[in-house]
């Protein structure tokens, strides 16, 4: 065997072993989608990747069992609002912390860093009473405000700050001489030059809100206010046992669009996570 052939065989073995490792990463998605098409009976029969009978009705019943369309919509609009607000709030604060010398800026950075150390589980109890006192339980307000101003918002702020600090300062000086106010410089120069950072913030913020579970669990009680993560666990029979065919059909509906977007924008999404992860 030549050296090249050896290398070739080595590489093939390598890919095969990686593929075996990949099974538990891929298998759940495939099983989820295929089981979503099975009937309640078939689900517990002999395991097969493809259903014997494709039961499209599951995907209708999902919407009949609970206001799933409404819940889907809730998740989308909340995630969009959270993303929009986070982009504005974090890029404003990140810009000031990166570019303007002002009294208290160092203190503020220390405070914000400390927020990163405190898990949401610690502050959720008083926040619950605060929201109840404001009469905002069972509304979407806490699901919007808490992520924007919580640790997730702080991560976004630092990400923006870091990006702004790396922008050439001369450009902003030129903007100032051209007659822009600080807001103008932020909006017309700093932001257009920060698209990669804004995209990263948008991606991680959207996903964070989309997957949020503890806050909806604590604050929401009526079905039509539910968001997707809360709704998914809710397909149960009167005894509280899961109705698997509906649950998996619904989960597929919630997961598959995200996975499709992820596969399309894979590079961008992975990079966004890497950008925030390194900060840690």
């Amino acid at each position: 065997m030549t050296y090249r052939q050896q290398q070739r065989i080595k590489r093939i073995c390598w890919v095969i072993s990686l593929s075996i490792v990949a099974i538990p990463f891929v298998f759940p998605f495939l099983w989820m989608v295929s089981s979503g098409f099975k009937s309640a009976n078939e689900i517990f029969g002999q395991p097969s990747l493809l259903p014997d009978v494709w039961r499209w009705r599951n995907f209708v019943e999902v919407f009949e069992y609970q206001p799933f369309a409404r819940q889907y919509f809730n998740s989308i609009y909340i995630a969009l609002v959270v993303t929009g607000l986070t982009l504005i709030v974090s890029s404003l604060a990140g810009y000031a912390l990166a570019r303007i010398r002002f009294a208290g800026s160092v203190l503020l950075v220390v405070f914000l860093l400390s927020a990163l150390m405190v898990p949401e589980e610690v502050t959720i109890i008083p926040n619950f009473f605060l929201i109840r006192w404001l009469g905002l339980t069972d509304t979407h307000v806490p699901l919007i405000l808490l992520p924007v101003f919580g640790p997730q918002g702080v991560v976004a702020t630092f990400l923006m700050r870091q990006y702004f600090m790396a922008l050439p300062k001369d450009l902003e000086d030129a903007g100032e001489l051209d007659g822009l106010s600080r807001i103008g410089i932020w909006w017309r120069i700093a932001l257009p030059l920060s698209r990669p950072a804004l995209a990263a913030v948008a991606i991680i913020t959207f996903l964070h809100s989309w997957n949020l579970f503890l806050e909806p669990l604590v604050f929401l009680s009526s079905l039509e206010k539910f968001t997707l993560p809360l709704a998914l666990g809710n397909f149960t029979d009167p005894y509280g046992m899961p109705l698997w065919h509906l649950q998996l059909a619904a989960t597929s509906l919630a997961v598959v669009p995200v996975i499709i977007v992820y596969v399309i924008a894979q590079r961008q999404i992975v990079e966004s996570f890497a950008m925030t992860g390194v900060k840690g």
């Binding site: 990463f25 759940p28 998605f29 989820m32 996903l207 989309w210 997957n211 579970f213 997707l228 993560p229 809360l230 998914l232 666990g233 989960t251 919630a254 997961v255 995200v258 996975i259 992820y262 999404i269 996570f273």
Partner: peptide, 8 residues
Amino acid sequence: PVVTSAVA
């Protein structure tokens, strides 16, 4: 799986 919701 990282981008997939923990619930799902």
